[in-house]
Design a protein around this nucleic acid. Sequence first.
RNA 1: GGCGCGGUACCCAAGUGGUAAGGGAGAGGUCUGCAAAACCUUUAUGCGCCGGUUCGAUCCCGGCCCGCGCCUCCA
Length: 499
Amino acid sequence: MAALELFNTLSGKVEALQPMGAPALRMYACGPTVYDYGHIGNFRTFLHVDVLRRFLRQQGVAVEHVMNVTDVDDKIIRNALAAGKPIAEYTTRFERAFFEDMEALGIERPEHTPRATEHIPEMVSLIERLAAKDIAYQTEDGSWYFRIARFAGYGKLSKKDLEGIEDGARVDADEYEKDAARDFALWKAVKIGADGVSEPSWQTALGAGRPGWHIECSAMATALLGESFDLHAGGEDLMFPHHENEIAQSESASGHPFARHWMHVRFLLVEGKKMAKSEGNFYTLRDLLLKGHRASAIRYLLLSVPYRHQMNFTFDGLAAATHTIERLRTFHRRMLRGGFATDGVNAAVSAATAKAAGDFTAALANDLNTAEATAAISEMVRAANSAADAGTLTAENAEAVLRVLALFDEIFAVLEDRDEERTRAALAWAEAEGRIREAAPELVAKLALGDSEIEALIAERTQAKNSRNFARADAIRVDLAAKGIVLEDSKDGVRWKRK
RNA sequence: GGCGCGGUACCCAAGUGGUAAGGGAGAGGUCUGCAAAACCUUUAUGCGCCGGUUCGAUCCCGGCCCGCGCCUCCA
C-alpha cells in the first residue's frame, strides 16, 4: 500500500497515518448538530473525511470510523422550543435529512454514528473520573466545569498559550462562578425557563442537567474506539476550543494520549465571502438541488480544492464541475461501449494509463491532494479519446482505462449518474414541505418529460432526417434542448442525455 | 492584539531551485446535412511588489502591499 502522508495539526507536520494497536484504523470525526438542514460548508468537511476513508480502504487499510450526531445543545433547545416540539422529535427530522443529504452526496456512512443522548452514562462517568481527581468541580448552580489550570498540555493542538487565551477571550456573562474564565462546562445544571418549563435534562449522579458540548465526543470516542486512537478530524473551527477541550478532558481522565493524529478541514468561501445568512450566500444542499444544480457536481466541486486550502465556492465553479463530470461520464460510456480493435495494445495509451494510475494514487497519498488527483485522470482521458478517434485504441487499452476510472471513482464517486433521482427526491421533499415554490420552474418542467416521450420524439426526428426534412428534425432537436435534452447523432444511432 | 493561511492566465487550480500540470471559458480548425460529442491548435517570457542568496527563484531569506480564517457551542 502507498502510505498516506497527512498533515497532523498536533505536530504541525505532514506525517504517515497508519493504524496502531488494532487491525483497523480508528478514526473519529465530529458530526452534525442536527438543528437545521446541512449546508455546503458542513458537507465540504464530511466530503473530505469521506475521501480520506475511501482512500485508506483503497490502499487496503480497514477503517473504523465514528461520527457523532449531536442531538442536544443550545441551538436545538432554542429551535425546538420555537417550533413547539419535543427535542427528540425535532432532532429526528433533521438527523434523517442529514443522512439523506450524505447519501445524495455519495458520502459513505461511517461504521458508527452514535447519538449524544444515548451516551449520557459514559459522559457522567467520565466527569466523575475527573471530579475524583479534582479536575472537575461543581459550581453553586449545580453545573460542572473543567479546571484548565490542571491540564499542562492545554493549548498544544491550537498552539495557544493560556495567557493569550485569557487575555483575548470574551467572558460569557452568564457563566459566573467559575474558578477561571476559560474553564469550560462539562455538565450544565437544569434551568427553569421564565414560563416555568424546564429545559431537557437527565437525572444523574451529577445532578439534573445536560452535557456540555465537548464531553460527548470524548465519551463516545473513548467508548467506541478506546482511550487512544489514530485520527480525529473536523472543521477548522473545532480546533479551538472544542478539540482542545476534548484532549484536556480525555487525557486528564485516562492519563493516555487521546488521538495521535488530527486533521482539520478549512472553511469555504461562497463567491469570495464567508458564507453567512446575513451575506445572502448561505446554501444548504437542498437549496442548490432545487435550483437545478446536480449533487455530483456539488460533490466534485467541494472536493476539487484540497482540504487544507480555503476554497471559494462559486456558481461559475459549479458550472465548470458539471461540465467536467459530463466529460468524464461521456468518456466512461465510450469506453464501456467497446467496439475497439481486439489485437494488441496502443503503447501510448498503455503508458498514459499506467501513469494516470500512479499519479492518481501518489497525489492522494500526498496529503490528499485531490486537485492533482483529478488532473492525473484528465491526462489519460485525452490520450484515450485521441486514440479512439484515430481508431488505434484496442479493447485491452479500454479495459485498462476502465480500471483506472474505477480507481478514480472509488474515491470521487461521480461516474454513476444518480443526479436525476436525487433532484427528484429534493423536489418531492420540497413538495411535502410546501416549499416547491423555491424550486427553479424550468427544473420542474424538465423533469416532467418522460423517457418514452423523449424517445418517441427522437424516432420522429430520425424519420424526418431520413426523408431529408432537416427543418422538422432540427425543430425537434431545438425543442428538446429547451427542455434540457441533448441529442448526439452517431454512427450507431442517436444518443441522448439530460443536461 | 495573539495564532495561522493565501495572492499563479478570463475563472478555478497543481507545482518545482533550472525555466509554468489540469479543468472550465474564449478563439480558430477537423468531423457532421447542421449540430452535439471528441480531437488538434491557441490564450502567463509570466507565478502580488521590492530587495537579497544563487550560475540560475514562481519555488529559499527579508521587507512591504492586498485578501482571508481562527481566537465567539459556525463544518
